[in-house]
C-alpha cells in the first residue's frame, strides 16, 4: 500500500492550469524525484500535498486516509513535513529555537502543565530540548545553536530547515529544491546525505530538483512535469530515455 497516493490532481489558478491530472503512488521508504523546468508546477504540487491549496480536482490519500482539503497543520500532525524553496525560517529565532518550536507535537504536556510548570512540563521540555540538540548535532549545527537562524550561511539555513522538518517526526518528507544554489559536487554530496536521512529516520522522501542528472542516482522513481502536465513517470533509466522528456529538456 502506497504511503502517499495522488489521484488525478489538478490545480488551477484562474486561467492557468498549474498542475494537470497528476497521479502518483509513493511507496513507503522510497525516494521519489519530481523534476521539471522552472514554472512546471512542482512547488504547486507540493503545496497541494501539504494542504496549502485544496486541489481543484483529484484526491490525495496519505496513510490510507483521504487528506485533500485538510489544513497544513493537520497534515503535519499526521506526518507530512516539508522544506521551502525560498527558505522560511522563523525570523528572530535562534537555530535552537527554530528546531525546538517544531518539536512541539511531541512534548507531551498540556497548557495547564505549562502554566503551572509542574514536573510533566519540565520532563517534556527536557525531552524536546534533548531531541533538538540531537538533530542539530546530526546536521552539524550544534555549535551555532544560539545564533539567529537567518544569520547562518545559505547552505546551513537549508540544513536547518531540514532539521526543523524532521523535528515534527514525519513519515513523509517533502524537499523543495534542497540543492538550489549548490555546485555539482555539493549536490552529489547532498544526495548521499538525503539517502542516509531516509535510512536513519525511516522516511519516505519526495524531492524536487531542477537538474535531472543530480537525482538520477538516488531516486527509485522520477516524475517529470512540464507546464503542469506529467510527461513521464518511471525509473531513472526509463525517464532518461523517454522521448517526451528529451523533447522538454533539449527541445525548443
Amino acid at each position: 500500500m502506497a504511503l502517499l497516493s495522488l489521484r488525478g490532481i489538478s490545480q488551477r489558478f484562474g486561467g492557468l492550469l498549474a498542475v494537470s491530472e497528476v497521479s502518483l503512488d509513493v511507496e513507503p521508504g522510497s525516494i521519489v524525484g519530481v523534476i521539471g523546468p522552472n514554472g512546471a508546477g512542482k512547488t504547486t504540487l507540493f503545496n497541494c500535498i501539504t494542504g496549502v491549496y485544496d486541489p481543484t480536482e483529484g484526491e490525495i490519500w496519505f496513510d490510507e486516509h483521504r487528506v485533500d482539503g485538510l489544513r497544513t497543520s493537520e497534515l503535519a500532525r499526521r506526518g507530512v513535513a516539508r522544506t521551502f524553496q525560498n527558505i522560511r525560517l522563523f525570523r528572530g529565532c535562534t537555530v535552537f529555537d527554530n528546531v525546538r518550536i517544531a518539536g512541539h507535537l511531541h512534548a507531551g504536556y498540556g497548557l495547564l502543565a505549562a502554566l503551572t510548570q509542574v514536573p510533566a512540563w519540565r520532563r517534556g521540555e527536557q525531552r524536546v530540548a534533548d531531541r533538538t540538540m540531537a538533530l542539530l548535532d546530526r546536521f552539524g549545527l550544534a555549535a551555532q545553536r544560539d545564533e539567529l537562524g537567518t544569520s547562518l550561511p545559505y547552505g546551513d539555513q537549508r540544513r536547518l530547515e531540514m532539521a526543523r522538518a524532521l523535528a515534527t517526526e514525519p513519515k513523509l518528507l517533502l524537499l523543495d529544491e534542497p540543492a538550489a544554489g549548490m555546485n555539482p559536487t555539493e549536490k552529489v554530496e547532498l544526495m548521499g546525505q538525503i539517502r542516509r536521512l531516509r535510512d536513519d529516520f525511516d522516511l519516505t522522501i519526495l524531492l524536487i530538483e531542477h537538474d535531472m542528472k543530480v537525482v538520477m542516482g538516488i531516486c527509485e522513481r522520477i516524475l517529470v512535469l512540464d507546464h503542469g502536465e506529467p510527461i513521464a513517470l518511471g525509473t531513472p533509466p526509463e525517464v532518461r530515455a523517454d522521448p517526451a522528456v528529451i523533447r522538454a529538456y533539449l527541445g525548443e
Binding site: A76, L89, F90, R100, I101, L111, R164
Partner: peptide, 23 residues
C-alpha cells in the same frame, strides 16, 4: 517557556512555516 508560547512566536515569525510544522 512552553511549546505553546513558542508556537505563538512561530506564528509571528512565519505563519506559513508555523503551519508546516503542525501549529
Amino acid at each position: 517557556r512552553s511549546t505553546r508560547g513558542r508556537a505563538l512566536v512561530a506564528i509571528r515569525d512565519d505563519e506559513v512555516a508555523a503551519e508546516a510544522v503542525g501549529i
